[in-house]
Design a protein around this nucleic acid. Structure first.
Length: 763
DNA sequence: CACTTTGGTAAGGGTAATTCTGGGAC
DNA sequence: GGTCCCAGAATTACCCTTACCAAAGT
């Protein structure tokens, strides 16, 4: 458990302008809070101007709460940039900690929002994911205790976590292939495997188990059944009955697959259009079995197997589909679905203000809507609407909603326009849901592996890789430069440092989605290379997503190229930085880690052996001068863009390669100049241009692929938990026939698009 | 020996995506 | 009359929860 100062888990420290995080040799995080505005000394200073806040995960006395520090920064006065910082800290140690990592998360937030920032690690989570509950009683018991867990389809984030856990489990035990554990080991041998890999997932253990089985079973996802297979399946069914495992083995399919296929096959099944007689029969059976009358709306509680049995000529799936998508609606006197209904649906969903599509209550939404055939039908309708957005899979739900609203607005104005296009980002609200509140959030993930297996104990600090300044409404903007964010008191803004970002190819060649684990980002488009500039977003303009269009995608593969991102949404600057730079990226909440960095993975770059940026470089960015400069720099971008773009926004992303980092070891003072993009006509960063600061500045700072900071020299990059870029083996192993887990960590040799994705991944 | 925990199977409701089909426009 | 396009219907591979069971552990 963490200790904040003394016993208290909440402490208010003096007014500070910045805090520095370091990590000691024990792996503890130390928060240094300067007492005053005085320039922060470099680390070897004899002055002790720092408050120390040590996080120690080895204190087990306080159970398994999340190692989470909440730092509340309160502006002292309007003109005073200093902050009162209050930190609360808790620590979560995963149950069954053996060889498992802990995650330390630090949040720094404006106190107005404190109650909205809950610890990322949820104590309840482990209770759920560690329980193999199979009975209703178990479930009720957990529910009564206030536990909640996720159901439904697994999100990408969940799969990433799962795979990361598996990866680490394998690594800790020196096992190469998860299938060895899943399919070959005895219960005893794989003891605790599922519990261990379920860590961090808010799912019942059984759900994890099932998911893992499916993912790694290469007899799953085989694809469409051939007529020959169908024939053979029929024979095997006669021979083995419902012994799906045996039938599956004989067919080279999973038991689940053959079971499902058999459900679709009934000798008496008709296909194609339903006859009136069949429809009549279906209606009769449904009403009979549900004790309802014709005209009643029946969408749930129907045993379709029983219905199909009685209908006789159709399978349960056919019956269900026919009833829910047509017959019930027709019988109950439903009206036709119109374009207005479609817009209405989007608006109503938007009104729900849910952050996740899974949170939509379709029953409620469908209630009393005469043109809605059933909640299930409405959901499928939503699905078709969603696909009007080309990259709907890549955008967050709120962004999708915004995009659809905009799309329909556009269509209203320009009938015939089908695809959403937002070049200017003008449709992007300048505020986020938390607008009106200054909110600074910093999350640091620390992963520790203990280890009997590893040659040396490892205490890795995974440095935050992204800062998002989401909104700033009517107050002075945060002033920003490439290396420093200055929080002006009174501003309304959100910063979030996230563990990783990831450029993911979209369906459109050369188009990437810049993803973070919390779906934050901004729409940008890559337009030039080798210094790549992202200039526009052909995507729902929103702070939540970044779309990267790489005109020269190959440059994304070349880590020696700097990446500059220009974003045409309100006041956005994005850059990738080396891990060390992050420590100089925040003025009010500065992170400094005394450690070496090492390339995380992927491109097999040379490893950096030493800290490339001395602390004085960091600290110099904390000066008021620098802050002023930051404002200027931000203004430059903005003003430049405003000449070309509606919103006057620029985002720059810089990816610092190993090569450039190496170089910068020797020429650190040159670093800022690498942020400048020629084609933007921006002066070098050192040049100060006196221009007004714009509002609504958003800053994303993301690391290069060397974004891990560690506290020991020999940390293995792969032992750091990657949060967003591992690849679902479902999508992987059928391509290459292997069971490679997280092959994104693999060889850079491959040339397929998957590897393109991997190569541009940054953690 | 009773009870609990753990690991597993089968049934069936459901989703997401593709394929098919019919009608309208040209 | 032919062809193309598109929306809706139908289909289906795959996913998920639940119920239930059995072996192992306590």
């Amino acid at each position: 458990m963490s200790t904040v100062e003394e016993e208290s888990d909440t402490v208010t420290v003096e007014t500070v302008n910045s805090v520095t995080l370091t990590q000691d040799t024990e792996g503890n995080l130390i928060l240094h809070c300067p007492q005053n505005e005085a320039e922060v000394d470099s680390e070897d200073s004899t002055e002790p101007p720092h408050k120390r806040l040590c996080l120690s995960e080895d204190d087990q006395s306080l159970d398994d709460s999340t190692p989470c520090i909440s730092v509340v920064a309160v502006p002292i006065s309007e003109n005073d940039q200093s902050f009162e910082v209050t930190m609360t800290a808790t620590t979560e140690v995963a149950e069954d900690e053996i060889n498992e990592g802990t995650v330390t998360q630090i949040q720094i937030l404006q106190n107005e929002q404190l109650d909205e920032i809950s610890p990322v690690g949820n104590e309840e989570v482990s209770a759920v994911s560690q329980a193999w509950f199979t009975t209703k009683e178990d479930k009720d018991s957990l529910t009564n205790k206030g536990h909640k867990w996720k159901q439904g389809m697994w999100s990408k984030e969940e799969i990433d976590i799962l795979m990361s856990n598996i990866e680490r489990y394998l690594k800790a035990r020196g096992i190469k292939d998860a299938t060895e554990i899943i399919f070959e080991m005895s219960k005893d041998e794989r003891k605790d495997f599922y519990r261990t890999i379920a860590w961090g997932l808010n799912r019942p253990l059984f759900a994890v188990y099932r998911r893992v089985l499916r993912m790694y079973d290469d007899r799953n996802h085989v694809g469409k059944y051939t007529p020959e297979e169908i024939e053979k399946l029929k024979e095997l069914r006669v021979k083995h009955g419902n012994d799906w495992a045996t039938i599956g083995a004989a067919l080279g399919r999973s038991a689940s697959s053959v079971k499902d296929r058999c459900r679709l096959m009934k000798d008496t099944c008709n296909t194609g259009k339903w006859t009136e007689k069949e429809e009549k029969r279906l209606a009769e059976v449904v009403h009979e079995l549900t004790s309802t009358e014709p005209g009643d709306i029946v969408t749930q509680g129907v045993s379709w197997a029983a219905v199909a049995e009685r209908v006789g000529t159709r399978s349960e799936k056919q019956c269900r589909s026919k009833w829910l998508n047509y017959l019930n609606w027709k019988q109950s006197g439903g009206t036709e679905w119109t374009k207005e209904d479609e817009i209405n649906l989007i608006l109503r969903i938007a009104e729900l203000e849910v952050s996740d599509e899974n949170d939509i209550n379709w029953d409620l939404l469908a209630e009393g809507w005469s043109s809605v055939r059933s909640p299930q039908w409405l959901r499928s309708k939503w699905w078709t609407i969603k696909r009007q957005i080309a990259n709907h899979k890549d955008v967050s739900f709120p962004v999708l909603i915004k995009g659809l609203k905009q799309l329909h607005e556009n269509q209203k104005n320009n009938p015939g326009q089908q695809l959403l296009e937002n070049k200017s980002g003008s449709g992007l609200p300048n505020t986020n849901p938390s607008s009106g509140v200054q909110h600074v959030q910093i999350r640091v993930a620390r992963l520790e592996e203990n280890t009997s297996n590893a040659p040396s104990p490892m205490a890795a600090l995974q440095i935050p890789v992204q800062i998002t300044h989401v909104s700033s409404t009517d107050s002075p903007a945060a002033t920003v430069d490439s290396g420093t964010i200055t929080l002006n008191s009174g501003t309304l803004q959100t910063f979030e440092i996230l563990p990783s970002f990831h450029l993911q190819p979209t369906g459109t060649p050369g188009t990437y989605l810049l993803q973070t684990s919390s779906s934050q980002g901004l729409p940008v488009t890559l337009t030039t290379s080798p210094t790549m500039t992202l200039t526009a977003a052909a995507a729902p303009a929103s702070p939540e997503q970044i779309i990267v269009h790489a005109l020269s995608p190959e440059h994304l593969l070349n880590t020696s190229d700097n990446v500059t991102v220009q974003c045409h949404t309100p006041s956005v600057i994005i850059r990738t930085v080396a891990a060390e730079e992050i420590s100089s990226s925040v003025t009010q909440a500065e992170l400094t880690v005394d450690s070496d960095i090492q390339s995380a993975h992927l491109t097999d770059p040379p490893t950096l052996e030493t800290n490339t940026f001395p602390d004085d470089i960091h600290q110099s960015k904390l000066s008021d001068q620098q802050s002023a400069y930051n404002e200027d720099e931000a203004s430059k971008f903005s003003s430049r863009n405003s000449s070309e773009l509606m919103d006057g926004v620029m985002v720059r992303t810089e990816e610092i390669s190993d090569a450039s980092l190496k170089q910068e070891e020797d020429t650190q003072s040159d670093l800022p100049s690498t942020y400048v993009t020629e084609d933007l006509g921006s002066p070098a960063i050192e040049e100060q241009v006196d221009q007004p600061t714009i509002d609504d500045e958003t800053v994303l700072i993301v690391p290069s692929s060397h974004g891990f900071i560690q506290t020991t020299d020999d940390i293995d990059s792969e032992s750091v938990l990657p949060l967003t870029t591992l690849t679902d083996p479902i999508l992987q192993h059928h391509g290459d026939g292997s069971h490679i887990i997280g092959s994104s960590l693999g060889s850079p040799d491959s040339e397929d698009s998957k590897d393109v994705e991997d190569l541009v991944s940054c953690h």
